[in-house]
Simulated assay, not measured.
Amino acid sequence: MTSQHTETEDAALVLFSGGQDSATCLAWALARYPRVETVGFRYGQRHAVELDCRAPIREALACDRLGEDHVVDLAATIGGLGQTAMTADIAIAIGQGGLPNTFVPGRNLLFLTCAAAIAYRRGLRRIVAGMCETDYSGYPDCRDDTIKAMQLALNLGMERRFVLETPLMWRDKAATWALALGLGGQGLVDVILERTHTCYLGNRCDRHAWGYGCGTCPACQLRARGWERWVAASRPPADPLRDIS
């Protein structure tokens, strides 16, 4: 797997779920920082199979820059705040305010707070996360304004100068596939296809061109559309003289 290193003295902590976006962010961080650690969260998610995908992905991306992994159990905390279609066997639908009921209120805010607490103790300045508001489900805690506000709050509350990095913020899923290819070539694309998990329903039985999933939940649909757009854009232009004898 190839990548161009642009080293700084900073070290990074990557929010690493086991999905496409976080795996791409991990590769992105490994290309930039001399030390990279990862953190995952158990929060009662229906697709907890994503946690099983984390170790194989880390193994595939293993290098001397990849440091420790951390797992934080937030199941009781998030589960105690109420059920959503992400944490209970509830049909996925549009809920109050036009948001899908897969939205888990406060989830990303808790993730970033926990990540900052780990980064504080581990001496890590950069916190890398896969939030995106270009091609997403409308979650307010994925917006750039939210991330900037969290960076300010965490820096004030912990007397640190954390930098919250969101390399996918302005990339749609097609551009995320392209970024993966640029970072690690076809080898990284293959890792994402075979080892990551994004499906909200936790389906690891059905293999599609874009990877594993049910194919119908919002996460699968976003991933499939992005794959199709990326593949279409990557095809060489048709040769108008090819069929002329």
Rank of each mutant, 00 (worst) to 15 (best):
G98N: 09
G98P: 14
G98T: 07
G98I: 05
L99Y: 12
L99M: 12
N101E: 08
N101S: 11
N101C: 09
N101I: 03
N101Y: 03
N101Q: 06
T102W: 08
F103C: 02
F103G: 02
F103R: 00
V104M: 14
V104I: 13
V104K: 10
V104P: 13
P105V: 07
G106I: 05
G106K: 05
G106P: 10
R107A: 08
R107H: 04
N108G: 06
N108Q: 08
N108F: 11
N108R: 04
L109K: 09
L109H: 09
L109D: 04
L109T: 11
L110T: 05
L110Q: 06
L110H: 10
L110F: 14
F111K: 11
L112N: 09
L112M: 14
L112P: 10
T113S: 15
T113V: 13
C114H: 07
A115N: 12
A115P: 14
A115H: 07
A116Q: 12
A116T: 08
A116G: 14
A116N: 13
A117C: 11
A117R: 10
A117K: 04
I118P: 14
I118A: 12
I118Y: 02
I118N: 11
I118H: 05
Y120R: 15
Y120A: 08
R121A: 14
R121Y: 01
R121Q: 15
R121I: 00
R122I: 00
R122S: 15
R122Q: 15
R122N: 06
R122E: 15
G123S: 05
G123P: 12
G123E: 00
L124Y: 02
L124M: 01
L124F: 01
L124H: 06
L124N: 04
L124T: 00
R125Q: 15
R126G: 03
R126D: 01
R126F: 00
I127S: 10
V128G: 12
A129K: 02
A129E: 14
A129Q: 15
G130L: 04
G130T: 12
G130C: 06
G130Y: 01
G130H: 07
M131C: 15
M131H: 08
M131T: 15
M131R: 00
M131E: 13
C132W: 01
C132I: 14
C132P: 04
C132Q: 03
C132F: 00
E133M: 05
E133W: 10
E133A: 04
E133I: 13
T134R: 13
T134H: 01
D135K: 00
D135Y: 00
Y136T: 09
Y136C: 07
Y136V: 03
Y136W: 09
S137Y: 04
S137E: 06
G138H: 02
G138K: 02
G138S: 02
G138W: 05
G138M: 05
Y139V: 06
